[in-house]
Design a protein around this nucleic acid. Structure first.
Lengths: 368, 368
DNA sequence: TTGAAAGCGCTAACAC
DNA sequence: GTGTTAGCGCTTTCAA
């Protein structure tokens, strides 16, 4: 119940205290207050104490808006994330938020419509003068990319690439991963293959599809049943149902990501009473947390989110400091994680850390 | 390949254009530019066109930082969300971001450590002069709450409450829901009950536990095996394993949220070969998307995220406009959704929309 | 080390 | 309807 030390008005203090008010109370100049709250400024101990005392009393907090205006840096990172339930995005966003927080940045969130273009939303972001833009599985018009480039605004894509090489990106090894999965399924003596595509225009989907087909083509497999799940649970359920209802259903299904694969497993088991891993093999891509839940036991190709995010942060930092940085397309290695959702080949499976992995002959024994 | 209309320097334009530059190019005053970009200001058509032309050429975008400084409104909502994989948070964050975007606000994201207090992070948020604070399943020291109150900063808790009534909150009907689940399990003739607790100090956990025990007590059941899962997958796996390994394992397990319940189902099936729904009944709380996946078919009590978020937005808006608003604790109704993970009682199950629900005798026939 | 003064880019009176 | 003039709360020269 200690009384307000400054004034006893009935009206509650309606606006936050300013540096000027602190200065007045402490009997110093306003710039002295600024210095006390600027790391690495030169202030005497006496001054620091006086100011901090006054600040404490008034509940003063530096106004970052005002600071941003003059420093031209907001310490905000705009992050676009698709508005779907795919746990991969949650993991990525979480890691991004945590990693950037560690180096003094906050995340300004933008939910992007996975179907529509994200330009209008990003247009908005720029007004907030974010220091950088990170796009999780979100595409970008090249026009907009140019504009950002011109304004010197760092942009990085996570889990997606642009067509040109104008925007740096960090992604998993989609092509190789999908190819390995194809080789894995081939080695497991599967015969009838199906591909459940994600969003048609996403680079991840294209690369994974290309890799998968490429892998199959090496063994002269040309026929692959193709359906489109659009990375959505609803669509996936529909198309996988169709797939499994066929008179000659596939015995190997590659879903372009884990989320769709989980939906597929679910459907195969609950609706078709299939034993996933023996009656039908289902594999995915990402290695999200639930993939390793025993109930799913999804065989998949991993995308190490933590590593990818760390790389994103690096790229942003580099762009922030250097004047001009080449727009590198970073590829983060993954591994084929063997669990129970697909028939396991006789050879090639090895113990690695606390899980089983598989490497095609071509890649076996390649040291890293 | 159209040349830069303003200057042809080799150096790329390094900073965004200002309203002043636009004004100069258009041959008007800077405030005219401001007006053109202020909805509802009075500008002639001719002026508007001139200005928009110039703005277009320079790639001008109003600087919201500068605007915030003077309007004292940032159109930013600080949102704290726990850093865990629970899909409920993803759904809530998503809905929050979308709903606020519709009324012109953006989300400034803060990942809160679910264990540690969130004060230090929130301290940070205040510096950004967010217009309001939404805490998803995150607690708040009463000291900090007071400080926000005093600064006139709206704060709303989602899916959690404070001890006092100082901070408004929006939550599901935890107590009643848990009580209904108890009644449901009782009606299903279960005998040995277990409760998997969430975070000990969270209000949701306390209310759900209280409701569950209360429901059981009405039928003189006093013994409930209690373990703590802390809303985490790892902890939950450990304690549920212990539960099921017992010589007299429970035949009914209530997990304080769906996420833990899914982990439990998973474990019971994969590790103990139990048929969930007959050998053992498992129920949860939230009704997250995956609860309705056939593979899980989780019987649970629903928390309608969309509705809850809509309510949060309302509360924030009210606080933003009115001077003083009483800190109401909003409770959003849910329903007991019957699926396959728990033995179903003979009576009380009714078809509602496209799913089955259950109501205890006490609540049957209550019209809404 | 400290203070005075000049803005950062914009909005909001206020005149015209 | 349009321009002029003050600031918003802070950082940053520049002198003292």
């Amino acid at each position: 119940m200690k009384p307000d030390p400054v004034k006893m008005d009935a009206e509650p203090e309606r606006r936050p205290a300013t540096a000027y008010e602190v200065a007045e109370l402490a009997g110093v100049s306003q710039s002295a207050v600024s210095r006390v709250f600027t790391p690495g400024a030169s202030v005497s101990a006496a001054m620091r104490e006086k100011v901090q005392d006054a600040a404490q009393q008034l509940g003063y907090r530096p106004n970052l808006v005002a600071r941003s205006l003059i420093t031209r840096r907001s310490s905000l990172i705009g992050v676009a994330v698709p508005g779907t339930a795919n746990p991969f995005y949650q993991a990525a966003l979480d890691a991004l938020s945590t990693s950037f927080a560690r180096i003094g940045y906050r995340v300004l969130l933008f939910t992007s419509d996975p179907l529509a273009g994200s330009d209008p939303i990003l247009e908005e972001v720029l007004r907030y003068r974010v220091d950088a833009l990170v796009l999780i599985s979100t595409s970008l018009s090249s026009h907009f990319a140019d504009e950002c480039l011109q304004q010197g605004l760092p942009v990085v894509m996570l889990n997606r690439k642009t067509d040109g090489d104008s925007v740096p990106s960090v992604a998993g090894d989609n092509r190789r991963g999908a190819k390995e999965l194809a080789a894995f399924l081939l080695a497991g003596k599967h015969r009838r293959f199906a591909y459940v595509a994600g969003l048609e225009h996403s680079s991840t989907n294209r690369d994974r599809e290309a890799g998968f087909l490429e892998g199959l083509a090496e063994r002269k497999i040309r026929h692959v049943e193709r359906v489109v799940g659009n990375y959505s649970a609803g669509d996936t359920e529909l198309v996988v149902r169709k797939l499994l209802s066929s008179t000659t259903p596939p015995d190997a299904i590659f879903c372009a990501n884990d989320y769709m694969a989980l939906v597929a497993i679910n459907l195969a088991r609950a609706e078709f009473q299939l034993n996933v891993g023996t009656d039908v093999s289902i594999v995915g891509f990402d290695d999200i947390e639930m993939a390793r839940w025993p109930i799913f036991g999804l065989t998949t190709y991993s995308q190490p989110v933590k590593v990818m995010v760390q790389r994103v942060v690096q790229v942003v930092q580099r762009q922030l400091s250097a004047a001009v940085v080449p727009a590198v397309q970073h590829i983060v290695d993954g591994e084929l994680i063997v669990r129970g959702s697909a028939r396991v080949p006789q050879t090639g499976v090895v113990r690695s850390a606390d899980q089983w992995t598989w490497h095609s002959r071509k890649h076996r024994g390649i040291s890293r």
